[in-house]
Write a protein that binds this DNA or RNA. Structure first.
Length: 852
RNA sequence: CGGCGCGUGGCGAAAUGGCAGACGCAGCAGACUUAAAAUCUGCUGGAGGAAACUCCGUGCGGGUUCGAGUCCCGCCGCGCCGACCA
């Protein structure tokens, strides 16, 4: 590669300033009670989604979000805020463990190496983190408190009366274990033989593991589960006070999937058992012509008749062997078999057949449905295929006859339904539900798609559960024994069975003569559920976060504590939902001061490769931030990522674009510096202490205004454009007033902090008014008086079409503008033969003459 | 299949309902240079015209409005996410 002369010596001054900021503790945030804490300053907590320190190193996608928050953090500091801007590592997780298994190296070693690399990369971009607050989820001093919070969940229950988490002691029932927020449950889980672990539903994509893409099968296992469903209602309702993108709120609501309906009890013909079904359309009960049980439903075996047994068994085997992908295949044919049994419809005594089919899911509702083929598409398809009766019970509201040849899923008027005959759907639902309750055969209920959170993993590299087992019963490990650290092991491979690797550490497992330790570990989500709290007070040995620190940084008189949280949409549902859940439990128990963790959420868009495809190793279109830095410098990298386009939008990378902002920084550099014959840089002799012309003043103040407003509005790309405009204005000015740099360098410093501080320091050697650093000044203020113009240029339109322009004194009277506009030759041409019916004037901007 | 988002020059983009294309990239021409690179200056949506200028133009069709890239309705295309949740 041809070595090109650098436009400015970034490779010398960038590392110098990074070191100096670290040495000076330039971005340390003082906590209440610490030296340097100023109680008069308002607080601002700006947080990045901390990274998993992979072996790949930092990605340009990370840099985008991190640069945006760094600009905000630096801007807020200059505006007089006490800013908390921390960084840490979400360092437990599968890749480190997989690598460890392959190479035999302890995951701690590779994790530390990756963390060092990430830290060096982040520092090489000049992010203004308070590195004294760095935390890692794998640090026992950190996960001690992850385990402590788990014990809080274990020792709490959700009181339906208060709608809050409470200590388990307030529970008056006889089986506390049945209500704990952390509980043990035998349930079918996603078992991945290749990874040797179970996975959460969310970690399974199309029947394959999210990590590695290995096949996943279903198996019943004893698991730790967190009772997140108890908070479903609040997790929906309390989104209301948050400044999140509406789309993300919607995603969360849909994920939780609240639906109102009724639970109805069907009797079995010739048996005492009953079948509960959930329906959102109780008004269609009279149209229920058969029932369907999920193949996994426990009643299937009991009710199946001798003649049907072989068919049902065969069907169950067939379903069990299907992968999740095959089962959810789109546009697939409905399948199912008749069990031979019949149920009695409790509203009309009708005898209806009971089928089993895999279009009914075992995990939702009761795993059984009443089928109303006339008014449900799935039931319609099924009934049509197996020739089951279809009885319409809802007529279209427009009074037209029900069309029995097609399914009608809309609302309408109830027909063929004695107690609710003629009622519109909404009323019919309410009436029939009340009627069901009266008769004791059903009741109104609410169902959620959200399932409780499967919380255990059969892995080594995660937080061990602080739980002991004795005689088949579990109990909490005493707080005093936290942190519970994984045992040192030579062999941390999965056992290949669902038995976790920790079970191989027999000495560690044997807690006492009778008690054994739990050998599962927690999922990666655990550590990221509360890290934002630890950042407030990362070294506290007494508490997961000190009360004063938590109150100060998290409480801004709003529902959420963190003022700004930036990260990718991939965490829109899970991480954010899990963190909100833990937060609410800690809030209910009185440990923290806000009901929500994150007040404002912003999602950065994806950065695509130059080919407009998602960056990936296999496509070979990955852009490495290190190579950009070595060629153009960290400031160029930062600036380009912000100049590409709106933060939330996805956009392709372009090296030519990097060169563009690099050239801009070169122009800024040459505003102040000039190259000597010998190739050294010296302060430009054109630079003098002189007044700015009115035009220059206008540009400078317009720039202050636009940059200030655009940072506030997250429009970093247009803020940069304006700084380019300002720079272009001065590039050829000679003499060149040095005052412009006193302002421009401060405006530039959040975006390109190295060059701003470097030029500031160089100018201080010759000019007054350059004290301290550019990045420690007060943010400039604009004056409208410099922006004011004495003349206004009007756009003159006739019938909305541009015809001419008109220059008049600013704020000229309307009559004068009208007269002058009408007198214009081009206006006359276009209105001859017409009558002027109306004239619209937008002051100092536009006049529109409407003529017919 | 459903939900959400997005469609503006050769490209990334900009535009409180009020001059479409700021700023940058690429391209063309010029200055500087022995030459090139770098830098600086000018031009750069399309069609027509020697020019002044004219007409057309924000995916397509309709609507609201004095005025629509922007708001409303319907379509088409692309992207992301969820997918039989009764």
């Amino acid at each position: 590669m041809a070595v090109q002369r650098k436009q400015f010596p970034f490779s010398e001054f960038e590392p110098k300033w990074q070191q100096r900021w670290l040495d000076e503790g330039a971005f340390r945030a003082a906590n209440p009670g610490e030296p340097g804490f100023d109680a008069n300053k308002p607080k601002y907590y700006v947080l990045d989604m901390f990274p998993y320190p992979s072996g790949e190193g930092l990605h340009v996608g990370h840099v985008e979000g991190y640069t945006a928050t760094d600009i905000i953090a630096r801007f807020k500091r200059l505006r007089g805020f006490n800013v908390l801007h921390p960084m840490g590592w979400d360092a437990f997780g599968l890749p480190a463990e997989q690598f460890a298994i392959k190479t035999g190296q302890h995951p701690r070693v590779t994790t530390e190496r990756n963390v060092d690399r990430f830290r060096a990369q982040l520092q090489g971009i000049g992010f203004s983190y308070d590195w004294d607050r760095e935390i890692s989820t794998t640090d026992p001093k950190y996960f001690r408190w992850t385990q402590w919070i788990f014990l809080k969940l274990y020792n709490s229950w959700f009181n339906p009366e208060t709608q809050k988490a409470e200590p388990i002691e307030t529970y008056k029932g006889d089986n506390a274990d049945s209500v704990r927020l952390a509980y043990v449950s035998e349930q079918p889980v996603n078992w991945c033989p290749a990874l040797g672990t179970v996975l959460a539903n969310e970690e399974v994509i199309d029947g394959k593991s999210e990590v590695g893409g290995h096949p996943v099968e279903r198996r019943p296992l004893r698991q730790w589960v967190l009772r997140i469903t108890a908070f479903a209602e609040r997790l929906i309702d309390e989104l209301d006070g948050l400044d999140w993108p509406e789309g993300i709120k919607l995603l969360q609501k849909n994920w939780i999937g609240r639906s109102e309906g009724a639970s109805v009890t069907f009797g079995l013909e010739g048996a005492s058992e009953t079948i509960e079904v959930f329906t959102t359309r109780p008004d269609t009960l009279f149209g229920a012509t058969y029932l369907v049980l999920a193949p996994e439903h426990t009643l299937v075996d009991q009710i199946t008749t001798a003649e049907q047994r072989d068919a049902v068994e065969a069907y169950k085997r067939q379903v069990a062997s299907k992968s999740d992908l095959e089962r959810t295949e789109l546009a697939k044919e409905k399948t199912g078999v008749f069990t031979g049994a019949y149920a009695i419809n409790p509203v009309n005594g009708a005898r209806i057949p009971i089928w089993t089919a895999d279009y009914v899911l075992t995990g939702y509702g009761t795993g059984a449905i009443m089928a109303v083929p006339a008014h449900d598409e799935r039931d319609w398809e099924f009934a049509t295929k197996f020739q089951l009766p279809i009885i319409p019970v809802v007529a279209p509201a427009d009074g037209s006859q029900p069309d029995t040849s097609a399914v009608f899923v809309g609302e309408g008027i109830a027909i063929n339904s004695a107690p609710i005959e003629g009622l519109p759907t909404k009323e019919a639902k309410a009436r029939i539900t009340a009627w069901l309750e009266e008769k004791g055969i059903g009741h109104g209920t609410i169902n959620y798609k959200l399932r409780d959170w499967l919380f255990s993993r059969q892995r080594y590299w995660g937080e061990p559960f602080p739980i002991l087992w004795e005689e088949g019963r579990h109990r909490a490990l005493p707080d005093t024994e936290l942190p519970l650290v994984q045992p040192e092991m030579e062999d941390f491979k999965p056992t290949g069975s669902p038995e976790p690797p920790l079970s191989k550490a027999t000495d560690w497992v044997q807690y006492s003569e009778k008690a054994r330790r739990e050998t599962n570990t927690m999922p990666q989500w655990a550590g990221s559920c509360w890290y934002y709290l630890r950042f407030c007070d990362p070294l506290n040995p007494e508490r997961f976060v000190g009360t004063d620190a938590e109150n100060y940084w998290m409480d801004a008189g709003k529902p959420g504590g963190v003022d700004l949280y930036v990260g990718g949409t991939e965490h829109a549902v899970l991480h954010l939902l899990y963190a909100r859940f833990w937060h609410k439990v800690l809030f209910d128990l009185g440990y923290i001061s806000t009901r929500e963790p994150f007040q404002r959420l912003v999602n950065q868009g994806m950065i695509l490769g130059p080919d407009e495809q998602k960056m990936s190793k296999s496509r070979g279109n990955v852009v490495n931030p290190d190579s950009v830095i070595s060629e153009y410098g960290a400031d160029s990298l930062r600036l380009y990522e912000m100049f590409m386009g709106p933060l939330e939008q996805s956009k392709p990378w372009s090296m030519k674009g990097v060169e563009g902002v690099y050239r801009f920084l070169g122009r800024v550099w040459r505003l102040a510096m000039e190259e000597t014959q010998e190739g050294d840089w010296t302060i430009s002799p054109a630079l003098v202490e002189a007044d700015l012309t009115p035009a220059q003043l206008r540009v400078v103040h317009a720039t202050i205004k636009k940059v200030t407003e655009d940072i506030d509005g997250f429009a970093f790309n247009t803020a940069i454009s304006q700084m380019m405009v300002c720079t272009n204005e001065f590039v050829n000015a000679s003499p060149r007033p040095v005052a412009v740099l006193r302002t421009l360098l401060v405006l530039l410093s959040p975006f390109a902090p190295h060059i701003a501080d470097e030029l500031w320091a160089l100018l201080a050697t010759k000019f007054s008014g350059f004290h301290g650093r550019a990045s420690s000044q007060a943010w400039p203020v604009w004056s409208e008086e410099y922006l004011a113009v004495s003349e206004a240029e009007y756009v003159v339109q006739v019938n909305g079409k541009l015809r001419d322009r008109l220059v008049v004194p600013k704020d000229a009277p309307q009559a004068e503008i009208e007269a002058k506009a009408l007198a214009l030759e081009k206006v006359q041409e276009s209105i001859t033969g017409k009558t002027v019916v109306k004239i619209i004037i937008v002051p100092n901007k536009l006049i529109n003459i409407v003529a017919k």
